[in-house]
Design a protein around this nucleic acid. Sequence first.
DNA 1: GTCTATAAGGTGATAGAC
DNA 2: GTCTATCACCTTATAGAC
Lengths: 206, 206
Amino acid sequence: MSRIREINSERILESSCIEFAEKGYSATKIIDIAKKAGLPKPNIYYYFQSKENLYRCVLESIIEPLLEASAPFDQYEDPAIALGEYIRTKIRISKEHPHASKVFASEIMHGAPHLTKDISDKLMSQTKHMTTRIDQWVSDGKMEPIDAQHLLFTIWASTQTYADFDWQIGQVTGKKTLDNHDYQTATELITRLVLKGCGLNLVEIK
Amino acid sequence: MSRIREINSERILESSCIEFAEKGYSATKIIDIAKKAGLPKPNIYYYFQSKENLYRCVLESIIEPLLEASAPFDQYEDPAIALGEYIRTKIRISKEHPHASKVFASEIMHGAPHLTKDISDKLMSQTKHMTTRIDQWVSDGKMEPIDAQHLLFTIWASTQTYADFDWQIGQVTGKKTLDNHDYQTATELITRLVLKGCGLNLVEIK
DNA sequence: GTCTATAAGGTGATAGAC
DNA sequence: GTCTATCACCTTATAGAC
Protein backbone atom coordinates (compact mmCIF):
# COMPACT_ATOMS: atom_id res chain seq x y z
CA MET A 1 0.00 0.00 0.00
CA SER A 2 1.36 3.38 -1.02
CA ARG A 3 2.17 6.02 1.58
CA ILE A 4 -0.50 8.41 0.37
CA ARG A 5 -3.11 5.69 0.34
CA GLU A 6 -2.26 4.80 3.91
CA ILE A 7 -2.50 8.39 5.10
CA ASN A 8 -5.76 9.12 3.31
CA SER A 9 -7.39 5.90 4.49
CA GLU A 10 -6.42 6.72 8.03
CA ARG A 11 -7.78 10.27 7.77
CA ILE A 12 -11.07 9.01 6.36
CA LEU A 13 -11.41 6.40 9.09
CA GLU A 14 -10.80 8.96 11.82
CA SER A 15 -13.17 11.54 10.36
CA SER A 16 -15.92 9.03 9.71
CA CYS A 17 -15.58 7.56 13.18
CA ILE A 18 -16.34 10.97 14.67
CA GLU A 19 -19.19 11.66 12.25
CA PHE A 20 -20.84 8.27 12.74
CA ALA A 21 -20.51 8.64 16.51
CA GLU A 22 -22.04 12.10 16.59
CA LYS A 23 -24.83 11.64 14.05
CA GLY A 24 -25.48 7.92 13.75
CA TYR A 25 -25.24 5.88 10.56
CA SER A 26 -28.21 7.24 8.61
CA ALA A 27 -27.77 10.88 9.53
CA THR A 28 -24.11 10.86 8.52
CA LYS A 29 -23.42 12.34 5.08
CA ILE A 30 -20.44 11.25 3.03
CA ILE A 31 -19.85 14.86 2.06
CA ASP A 32 -19.33 15.77 5.72
CA ILE A 33 -16.84 12.97 6.17
CA ALA A 34 -15.02 14.18 3.07
CA LYS A 35 -14.93 17.78 4.33
CA LYS A 36 -13.66 16.70 7.73
CA ALA A 37 -10.96 14.59 6.09
CA GLY A 38 -10.04 17.41 3.70
CA LEU A 39 -10.70 15.29 0.61
CA PRO A 40 -13.24 15.43 -2.22
CA LYS A 41 -16.25 13.18 -1.87
CA PRO A 42 -15.44 10.62 -4.59
CA ASN A 43 -12.22 9.77 -2.82
CA ILE A 44 -14.20 8.33 0.06
CA TYR A 45 -15.74 5.89 -2.42
CA TYR A 46 -12.40 5.31 -4.06
CA TYR A 47 -10.93 4.08 -0.79
CA PHE A 48 -13.95 2.46 0.86
CA GLN A 49 -16.37 1.56 -1.98
CA SER A 50 -19.55 2.34 -0.06
CA LYS A 51 -20.90 4.09 3.00
CA GLU A 52 -21.82 0.79 4.56
CA ASN A 53 -18.38 -0.67 4.05
CA LEU A 54 -16.77 2.41 5.60
CA TYR A 55 -19.12 2.14 8.55
CA ARG A 56 -18.26 -1.51 9.03
CA CYS A 57 -14.56 -0.70 9.08
CA VAL A 58 -15.16 1.90 11.79
CA LEU A 59 -17.33 -0.50 13.74
CA GLU A 60 -14.76 -3.26 13.61
CA SER A 61 -11.99 -0.97 14.82
CA ILE A 62 -13.37 -1.18 18.35
CA ILE A 63 -13.71 -4.96 18.40
CA GLU A 64 -10.06 -5.77 18.99
CA PRO A 65 -9.75 -3.53 22.09
CA LEU A 66 -12.99 -5.01 23.41
CA LEU A 67 -11.80 -8.57 22.93
CA GLU A 68 -8.46 -7.83 24.56
CA ALA A 69 -10.13 -6.23 27.57
CA SER A 70 -11.01 -9.56 29.15
CA ALA A 71 -7.37 -10.61 29.46
CA PRO A 72 -7.36 -9.99 33.25
CA PHE A 73 -9.81 -12.86 33.64
CA ASP A 74 -7.06 -15.20 32.47
CA GLN A 75 -4.08 -13.39 33.94
CA TYR A 76 -5.19 -13.34 37.56
CA GLU A 77 -6.44 -16.03 39.90
CA ASP A 78 -7.72 -13.50 42.40
CA PRO A 79 -11.20 -12.27 41.40
CA ALA A 80 -10.63 -8.92 43.12
CA ILE A 81 -7.63 -8.19 40.94
CA ALA A 82 -9.16 -9.62 37.77
CA LEU A 83 -12.42 -7.68 38.11
CA GLY A 84 -10.57 -4.51 39.13
CA GLU A 85 -8.27 -4.70 36.13
CA TYR A 86 -11.16 -5.49 33.81
CA ILE A 87 -13.05 -2.40 34.99
CA ARG A 88 -9.93 -0.29 34.66
CA THR A 89 -9.43 -1.52 31.10
CA LYS A 90 -13.06 -0.93 30.13
CA ILE A 91 -12.89 2.64 31.44
CA ARG A 92 -9.67 3.15 29.48
CA ILE A 93 -11.41 2.04 26.31
CA SER A 94 -14.19 4.57 26.93
CA LYS A 95 -11.55 7.22 27.44
CA GLU A 96 -9.25 6.34 24.56
CA HIS A 97 -11.82 5.30 21.96
CA PRO A 98 -14.84 7.44 22.80
CA HIS A 99 -16.14 7.72 19.24
CA ALA A 100 -15.70 4.10 18.23
CA SER A 101 -17.29 3.08 21.53
CA LYS A 102 -20.28 5.19 20.71
CA VAL A 103 -20.57 3.74 17.22
CA PHE A 104 -20.52 0.27 18.73
CA ALA A 105 -23.12 1.20 21.36
CA SER A 106 -25.42 2.73 18.75
CA GLU A 107 -25.05 -0.39 16.63
CA ILE A 108 -26.02 -2.64 19.55
CA MET A 109 -28.86 -0.38 20.58
CA HIS A 110 -30.46 -0.73 17.16
CA GLY A 111 -30.17 -4.49 17.11
CA ALA A 112 -26.70 -4.87 15.59
CA PRO A 113 -27.84 -4.82 11.93
CA HIS A 114 -24.29 -4.44 10.60
CA LEU A 115 -22.41 -6.70 12.99
CA THR A 116 -21.08 -9.81 11.28
CA LYS A 117 -21.83 -13.18 12.80
CA ASP A 118 -18.11 -13.78 13.08
CA ILE A 119 -17.64 -10.82 15.43
CA SER A 120 -20.84 -11.47 17.29
CA ASP A 121 -19.69 -15.05 17.92
CA LYS A 122 -16.31 -13.91 19.20
CA LEU A 123 -17.94 -11.50 21.64
CA MET A 124 -20.38 -14.14 22.81
CA SER A 125 -17.68 -16.69 23.37
CA GLN A 126 -15.68 -14.13 25.33
CA THR A 127 -18.73 -13.41 27.48
CA LYS A 128 -19.30 -17.09 28.06
CA HIS A 129 -15.67 -17.42 29.12
CA MET A 130 -15.98 -14.58 31.62
CA THR A 131 -19.21 -15.85 33.19
CA THR A 132 -17.72 -19.34 33.52
CA ARG A 133 -14.72 -17.87 35.27
CA ILE A 134 -16.90 -15.91 37.68
CA ASP A 135 -19.05 -18.96 38.40
CA GLN A 136 -15.87 -20.89 39.15
CA TRP A 137 -14.66 -18.24 41.59
CA VAL A 138 -18.03 -18.43 43.30
CA SER A 139 -17.99 -22.21 43.64
CA ASP A 140 -14.39 -22.03 44.86
CA GLY A 141 -15.62 -19.76 47.64
CA LYS A 142 -13.43 -16.92 46.40
CA MET A 143 -16.36 -14.55 46.14
CA GLU A 144 -20.00 -14.38 47.20
CA PRO A 145 -22.64 -16.01 45.00
CA ILE A 146 -23.75 -13.61 42.28
CA ASP A 147 -25.40 -13.78 38.88
CA ALA A 148 -22.39 -13.55 36.56
CA GLN A 149 -24.33 -12.37 33.51
CA HIS A 150 -26.06 -9.52 35.28
CA LEU A 151 -22.82 -8.56 36.99
CA LEU A 152 -21.25 -8.16 33.57
CA PHE A 153 -24.23 -6.11 32.34
CA THR A 154 -23.66 -3.66 35.17
CA ILE A 155 -19.91 -3.47 34.59
CA TRP A 156 -20.39 -2.96 30.85
CA ALA A 157 -23.05 -0.30 31.32
CA SER A 158 -21.30 1.67 34.03
CA THR A 159 -17.95 1.78 32.22
CA GLN A 160 -19.31 2.42 28.71
CA THR A 161 -21.55 5.21 29.92
CA TYR A 162 -18.51 7.51 30.04
CA ALA A 163 -18.20 7.23 26.26
CA ASP A 164 -21.81 6.69 25.22
CA PHE A 165 -23.47 9.34 27.33
CA ASP A 166 -20.65 11.87 27.48
CA TRP A 167 -23.10 14.69 26.73
CA GLN A 168 -25.12 13.90 29.85
CA ILE A 169 -21.97 13.53 31.92
CA GLY A 170 -20.72 16.86 30.63
CA GLN A 171 -24.02 18.50 31.58
CA VAL A 172 -23.99 17.12 35.10
CA THR A 173 -20.33 17.68 35.89
CA GLY A 174 -20.23 21.02 34.10
CA LYS A 175 -17.07 19.95 32.30
CA LYS A 176 -16.73 19.78 28.55
CA THR A 177 -14.34 16.85 28.74
CA LEU A 178 -13.37 14.70 31.67
CA ASP A 179 -9.78 14.78 32.87
CA ASN A 180 -7.64 11.95 34.19
CA HIS A 181 -8.81 12.58 37.72
CA ASP A 182 -12.46 12.12 36.71
CA TYR A 183 -11.72 8.79 35.05
CA GLN A 184 -9.79 7.79 38.16
CA THR A 185 -12.80 8.65 40.33
CA ALA A 186 -15.10 6.68 38.03
CA THR A 187 -12.82 3.65 38.03
CA GLU A 188 -12.51 3.65 41.80
CA LEU A 189 -16.23 4.06 42.37
CA ILE A 190 -17.25 1.27 40.01
CA THR A 191 -14.52 -1.01 41.35
CA ARG A 192 -15.61 -0.30 44.91
CA LEU A 193 -19.26 -1.09 44.14
CA VAL A 194 -18.43 -4.28 42.29
CA LEU A 195 -15.85 -5.65 44.73
CA LYS A 196 -17.76 -4.84 47.89
CA GLY A 197 -20.92 -6.12 46.22
CA CYS A 198 -19.17 -9.43 45.62
CA GLY A 199 -17.79 -9.58 49.16
CA LEU A 200 -14.25 -8.88 47.99
CA ASN A 201 -11.70 -6.56 49.55
CA LEU A 202 -10.42 -3.60 47.57
CA VAL A 203 -6.96 -4.30 46.22
CA GLU A 204 -4.33 -1.66 45.67
CA ILE A 205 -2.86 -1.67 42.16
CA LYS A 206 -0.83 1.34 41.25
CA MET B 1 -60.76 16.17 20.80
CA SER B 2 -62.86 13.68 18.87
CA ARG B 3 -62.75 10.01 19.71
CA ILE B 4 -61.26 8.98 16.38
CA ARG B 5 -58.62 11.65 16.62
CA GLU B 6 -57.64 10.42 20.05
CA ILE B 7 -57.39 6.81 18.92
CA ASN B 8 -55.40 7.61 15.80
CA SER B 9 -53.00 9.91 17.62
CA GLU B 10 -52.36 7.23 20.16
CA ARG B 11 -51.77 4.57 17.50
CA ILE B 12 -49.33 6.82 15.68
CA LEU B 13 -47.45 7.63 18.87
CA GLU B 14 -47.10 3.97 19.76
CA SER B 15 -46.02 2.90 16.29
CA SER B 16 -43.54 5.73 15.91
CA CYS B 17 -42.08 5.08 19.35
CA ILE B 18 -41.21 1.55 18.27
CA GLU B 19 -39.88 2.64 14.89
CA PHE B 20 -37.74 5.45 16.30
CA ALA B 21 -36.39 3.12 18.98
CA GLU B 22 -35.46 0.39 16.52
CA LYS B 23 -34.08 2.50 13.69
CA GLY B 24 -33.12 5.87 15.14
CA TYR B 25 -34.51 9.22 13.99
CA SER B 26 -32.94 9.52 10.55
CA ALA B 27 -33.41 5.91 9.49
CA THR B 28 -37.08 5.95 10.41
CA LYS B 29 -39.43 6.43 7.46
CA ILE B 30 -42.85 8.02 7.90
CA ILE B 31 -44.28 5.42 5.55
CA ASP B 32 -43.23 2.65 7.95
CA ILE B 33 -44.84 4.42 10.88
CA ALA B 34 -48.01 4.78 8.82
CA LYS B 35 -48.01 1.10 7.87
CA LYS B 36 -47.47 0.03 11.46
CA ALA B 37 -50.31 2.29 12.59
CA GLY B 38 -52.55 1.06 9.77
CA LEU B 39 -53.05 4.54 8.35
CA PRO B 40 -52.09 6.29 5.11
CA LYS B 41 -48.97 8.42 5.22
CA PRO B 42 -50.61 11.88 4.97
CA ASN B 43 -52.54 11.20 8.16
CA ILE B 44 -49.30 11.19 10.10
CA TYR B 45 -48.73 14.73 8.89
CA TYR B 46 -52.34 15.62 9.52
CA TYR B 47 -51.97 14.71 13.18
CA PHE B 48 -48.35 15.62 13.86
CA GLN B 49 -47.38 18.21 11.21
CA SER B 50 -43.82 16.98 10.76
CA LYS B 51 -41.49 14.10 11.43
CA GLU B 52 -39.51 16.18 13.87
CA ASN B 53 -42.60 17.18 15.83
CA LEU B 54 -43.74 13.58 16.06
CA TYR B 55 -40.30 12.56 17.27
CA ARG B 56 -40.33 15.25 19.91
CA CYS B 57 -43.70 14.03 21.19
CA VAL B 58 -42.31 10.52 21.51
CA LEU B 59 -39.20 11.81 23.20
CA GLU B 60 -41.15 13.85 25.72
CA SER B 61 -43.38 10.90 26.61
CA ILE B 62 -40.53 9.42 28.64
CA ILE B 63 -39.69 12.62 30.52
CA GLU B 64 -42.54 12.49 33.01
CA PRO B 65 -41.75 8.95 34.22
CA LEU B 66 -38.08 9.94 34.49
CA LEU B 67 -38.85 13.03 36.55
CA GLU B 68 -41.17 11.10 38.85
CA ALA B 69 -38.56 8.40 39.42
CA SER B 70 -36.64 10.48 41.92
CA ALA B 71 -39.57 10.71 44.33
CA PRO B 72 -37.97 8.20 46.76
CA PHE B 73 -35.23 10.75 47.43
CA ASP B 74 -37.85 12.96 49.05
CA GLN B 75 -40.08 10.26 50.51
CA TYR B 76 -37.48 8.46 52.60
CA GLU B 77 -34.96 9.67 55.12
CA ASP B 78 -33.04 6.41 55.06
CA PRO B 79 -30.59 6.37 52.10
CA ALA B 80 -30.77 2.57 51.86
CA ILE B 81 -34.51 2.69 51.26
CA ALA B 82 -34.38 5.77 49.03
CA LEU B 83 -31.62 4.37 46.80
CA GLY B 84 -33.22 0.95 46.70
CA GLU B 85 -36.59 2.35 45.67
CA TYR B 86 -34.96 4.63 43.09
CA ILE B 87 -33.19 1.68 41.49
CA ARG B 88 -36.39 -0.36 41.54
CA THR B 89 -38.25 2.48 39.84
CA LYS B 90 -35.56 2.99 37.19
CA ILE B 91 -35.62 -0.71 36.34
CA ARG B 92 -39.39 -0.57 36.10
CA ILE B 93 -39.12 2.28 33.59
CA SER B 94 -36.75 0.20 31.48
CA LYS B 95 -39.22 -2.66 31.64
CA GLU B 96 -42.42 -0.72 31.04
CA HIS B 97 -41.17 1.87 28.56
CA PRO B 98 -38.42 0.05 26.69
CA HIS B 99 -38.90 1.86 23.39
CA ALA B 100 -39.25 5.37 24.75
CA SER B 101 -36.22 4.71 26.97
CA LYS B 102 -34.24 3.78 23.91
CA VAL B 103 -35.35 6.86 22.01
CA PHE B 104 -34.24 8.98 24.95
CA ALA B 105 -30.90 7.17 25.19
CA SER B 106 -30.25 7.57 21.49
CA GLU B 107 -31.08 11.25 21.75
CA ILE B 108 -28.63 11.75 24.61
CA MET B 109 -25.97 9.69 22.90
CA HIS B 110 -26.03 12.00 19.89
CA GLY B 111 -25.78 15.15 21.96
CA ALA B 112 -29.48 15.80 22.61
CA PRO B 113 -30.11 17.84 19.42
CA HIS B 114 -33.90 17.72 19.86
CA LEU B 115 -34.19 18.11 23.61
CA THR B 116 -35.70 21.45 24.59
CA LYS B 117 -33.89 23.59 27.13
CA ASP B 118 -36.97 23.43 29.31
CA ILE B 119 -36.75 19.66 29.68
CA SER B 120 -32.99 19.65 29.92
CA ASP B 121 -33.23 22.18 32.78
CA LYS B 122 -35.80 20.09 34.62
CA LEU B 123 -33.62 16.99 34.39
CA MET B 124 -30.57 18.93 35.52
CA SER B 125 -32.36 20.44 38.47
CA GLN B 126 -33.59 16.97 39.45
CA THR B 127 -30.04 15.65 39.25
CA LYS B 128 -28.76 18.52 41.35
CA HIS B 129 -31.44 17.76 43.92
CA MET B 130 -30.42 14.09 44.09
CA THR B 131 -26.72 14.77 44.46
CA THR B 132 -27.40 17.34 47.19
CA ARG B 133 -29.45 14.78 49.05
CA ILE B 134 -26.71 12.16 48.78
CA ASP B 135 -24.08 14.65 49.93
CA GLN B 136 -26.29 15.44 52.93
CA TRP B 137 -26.63 11.77 53.84
CA VAL B 138 -22.85 11.49 53.67
CA SER B 139 -22.21 14.50 55.91
CA ASP B 140 -24.86 13.20 58.32
CA GLY B 141 -22.84 10.01 58.57
CA LYS B 142 -25.73 7.97 57.18
CA MET B 143 -23.59 6.51 54.43
CA GLU B 144 -19.92 6.30 53.49
CA PRO B 145 -18.37 9.20 51.57
CA ILE B 146 -18.92 8.75 47.85
CA ASP B 147 -18.98 10.90 44.71
CA ALA B 148 -22.71 11.49 44.26
CA GLN B 149 -22.53 12.38 40.57
CA HIS B 150 -20.60 9.28 39.57
CA LEU B 151 -22.82 7.13 41.76
CA LEU B 152 -25.80 8.38 39.78
CA PHE B 153 -23.98 7.71 36.50
CA THR B 154 -23.56 4.08 37.50
CA ILE B 155 -27.16 3.72 38.66
CA TRP B 156 -28.49 5.31 35.48
CA ALA B 157 -26.29 3.20 33.24
CA SER B 158 -26.88 -0.12 34.95
CA THR B 159 -30.66 0.29 35.08
CA GLN B 160 -31.12 1.77 31.60
CA THR B 161 -28.98 -0.90 30.00
CA TYR B 162 -31.92 -3.32 30.24
CA ALA B 163 -33.87 -1.14 27.80
CA ASP B 164 -31.07 0.36 25.71
CA PHE B 165 -29.02 -2.76 25.09
CA ASP B 166 -31.79 -5.34 25.14
CA TRP B 167 -30.34 -6.97 22.02
CA GLN B 168 -27.05 -7.69 23.79
CA ILE B 169 -28.86 -8.89 26.89
CA GLY B 170 -30.97 -11.18 24.78
CA GLN B 171 -27.87 -12.60 23.12
CA VAL B 172 -26.12 -13.30 26.41
CA THR B 173 -29.08 -14.67 28.33
CA GLY B 174 -30.43 -16.56 25.32
CA LYS B 175 -33.88 -15.13 26.00
CA LYS B 176 -35.86 -13.07 23.53
CA THR B 177 -37.48 -11.03 26.27
CA LEU B 178 -36.72 -10.89 29.98
CA ASP B 179 -39.37 -12.11 32.41
CA ASN B 180 -40.28 -10.70 35.81
CA HIS B 181 -37.75 -12.91 37.50
CA ASP B 182 -34.92 -11.51 35.37
CA TYR B 183 -35.86 -7.93 36.23
CA GLN B 184 -36.03 -8.99 39.87
CA THR B 185 -32.52 -10.44 39.65
CA ALA B 186 -31.24 -7.27 38.00
CA THR B 187 -32.85 -5.01 40.59
CA GLU B 188 -31.44 -7.04 43.46
CA LEU B 189 -27.95 -7.19 41.99
CA ILE B 190 -27.72 -3.46 41.30
CA THR B 191 -29.23 -2.61 44.69
CA ARG B 192 -26.77 -4.93 46.40
CA LEU B 193 -23.77 -3.37 44.63
CA VAL B 194 -24.90 0.18 45.32
CA LEU B 195 -25.91 -0.31 48.97
CA LYS B 196 -22.91 -2.38 49.98
CA GLY B 197 -20.68 0.00 48.01
CA CYS B 198 -22.04 2.86 50.13
CA GLY B 199 -21.63 0.96 53.38
CA LEU B 200 -25.38 0.47 53.75
CA ASN B 201 -27.24 -2.64 54.80
CA LEU B 202 -29.67 -4.27 52.41
CA VAL B 203 -33.22 -3.44 53.38
CA GLU B 204 -36.15 -5.72 52.85
CA ILE B 205 -39.09 -4.08 51.10
CA LYS B 206 -42.10 -6.27 50.46
C1' DG C 1 -4.67 8.59 -8.43
C1' DT C 2 -7.78 12.74 -8.16
C1' DC C 3 -11.92 15.47 -8.76
C1' DT C 4 -16.06 17.87 -11.41
C1' DA C 5 -20.44 17.10 -12.96
C1' DT C 6 -24.32 14.28 -13.10
C1' DA C 7 -27.25 10.24 -12.84
C1' DA C 8 -30.34 7.41 -10.05
C1' DG C 9 -33.12 6.59 -6.29
C1' DG C 10 -35.52 7.63 -2.27
C1' DT C 11 -38.00 10.52 1.39
C1' DG C 12 -40.42 14.43 3.63
C1' DA C 13 -44.13 17.01 2.70
C1' DT C 14 -48.52 18.68 0.33
C1' DA C 15 -52.25 19.73 -3.17
C1' DG C 16 -56.57 18.64 -4.05
C1' DA C 17 -60.28 15.09 -4.78
C1' DC C 18 -63.44 12.67 -1.87
C1' DG D 1 -61.56 14.28 8.30
C1' DT D 2 -59.32 11.03 4.93
C1' DC D 3 -56.29 9.52 1.23
C1' DT D 4 -54.29 9.31 -3.85
C1' DA D 5 -51.05 11.32 -6.63
C1' DT D 6 -47.23 14.26 -7.02
C1' DC D 7 -43.65 17.72 -6.01
C1' DA D 8 -39.28 19.22 -4.39
C1' DC D 9 -35.32 18.13 -2.36
C1' DC D 10 -31.41 15.61 -0.87
C1' DT D 11 -27.99 11.86 -0.81
C1' DT D 12 -25.54 7.91 -2.48
C1' DA D 13 -22.90 6.60 -6.05
C1' DT D 14 -20.41 6.92 -10.55
C1' DA D 15 -18.88 8.37 -15.30
C1' DG D 16 -15.31 10.43 -17.37
C1' DA D 17 -11.96 14.39 -17.77
C1' DC D 18 -7.48 15.47 -15.85
